[in-house]
Write a protein that binds this DNA or RNA. Structure first.
Lengths: 213, 213
DNA sequence: CGTGAGTTTGAAGGGAATCAAGACTAGTGG
DNA sequence: CCACTAGTCTTGATTCCCTTCAAACTCACG
């Protein structure tokens, strides 16, 4: 995975939902935003594009924790270090918020603290959904689950998939071959269409939601 | 899974770390503390004993999210409903804290809000560890991972396992047979000893921590 | 001492991984 | 514009780890 330097910096802080402020950085596809084990002195929010946060074992096995899209925030840690790495999946703009500034803001404005807390609890619940999926669901259920989740988050049945098959596999705890085969099967069953690799159409949302278990 | 009524209530609120107060309830083994889908108007803290939080699919597949021991809190939700069920694994005492009271306390005392926030972020990180384990680790790595985690949390290499093999399996995303076989193998390798079913001794912490990947 | 839930062990089967080509696709340069 | 190429994705054949099915064992408890 290549990790060139960030392309550009917007020096002027821009405002944001919940009053987060900070400079915006542009990242190219597959560029690292921060690495596993780096000091965590910023929290990030996706302005546009898409980000994956992941962890890699010494032998190279990789697990993607979460996909982040516009509005989502990521990079918050309990300790001093980032326990996950973050990489742009597409051309992406993120806002960086200093951790100190954020906790100060949260201390001054209770509604900011509340929003931050709620976002974190929601992240925990998403992670619990992920655990259920990885622990107890079949390959087919996992793939369908991801498609339905993407549809729910983008609000449409026409998905422009920002991630590669490898990303999907590493999120779902499967191999790239199994993801590919499963998608082909789903297309054969008529519940999805795959006009191009990065474009998937959910043709039967009801059936899919049933298949996701 | 039986769910008899709670055994007894301590009416007088008792104090607790972080200033949480509320009545304490005693629960028998396998008793339900709250169910999936019930309204979430309390947050809980384990005083003594051990609790599992889990989710069950319609067809009966079960995934345990987390094991909770003395001091741990659980049951916090972003929405109105409990998305997981909580059950006592052993004779257990829990403190119930009204959700409204807790958020009020957090609003008044910033240090309470901070502690609550940190605990939630830590829970998120534990869930992320769980995701990595379920997505990318072998049966052996998972079982060892659980044993090491239990040792780290209880601070000793002599484990009094509060959960059944089924609980371990449902936490690890495996079957009870695989858990049992794996434990037997680990004993055969000399890295653990199993004097009784509910008592496991870690004989080689270094080797085990290596095996956990 | 019988009884039954929980656990262990064995044998067979299956779902996903691995190994291995082949087919696309996007980007490159002639 | 179109080969050329590298990377990504798909498809096929085989393998293997874990599950499933089945039975024996253990131990707490009446």
């Amino acid at each position: 995975m290549l990790s060139p330097l960030p392309q550009s910096v917007t020096p002027a802080p821009t405002s944001a939902p919940f009053g987060f402020t900070g400079p915006c950085l542009r990242h190219a596809r597959d560029e690292e935003i921060f690495g596993e084990g780096e000091t965590a002195d910023h929290v990030y929010q996706v302005i546009s594009g898409s980000v994956r946060t992941c962890r890699t074992l010494r032998d190279g096995r990789r697990q993607i924790d979460e996909f982040h899209f516009a509005g989502d925030y990521f990079g918050l840690e309990a300790g001093d270090l980032h326990r996950v790495a973050a990489e742009a999946m597409t051309e992406t703009t993120v806002r960086m918020v200093r951790r100190g500034a954020l906790s100060q803001l949260a201390a001054q404005r209770p509604e900011v603290a509340r929003v931050l807390f709620r976002l974190t609890v929601e992240g925990l619940q998403r992670s619990q959904d992920h655990v259920l999926m990885l622990g107890r669901k079949s390959a087919r259920e996992r793939v369908v689950g991801l498609l339905v989740d993407l549809a729910d988050r983008t609000g449409g049945d026409e998905l422009d998939i920002p991630m590669s098959r490898q990303d999907m596999a590493d999120y779902l705890g499967l191999t790239i071959e199994t993801v590919s085969r499963t998608l082909t099967q789903l297309q054969g069953d008529g519940v999805i269409a795959i006009p191009t690799t990065r474009h998937i159409v959910l043709r039967d949302g009801v059936a899919l939601r049933r298949l996701a278990s």
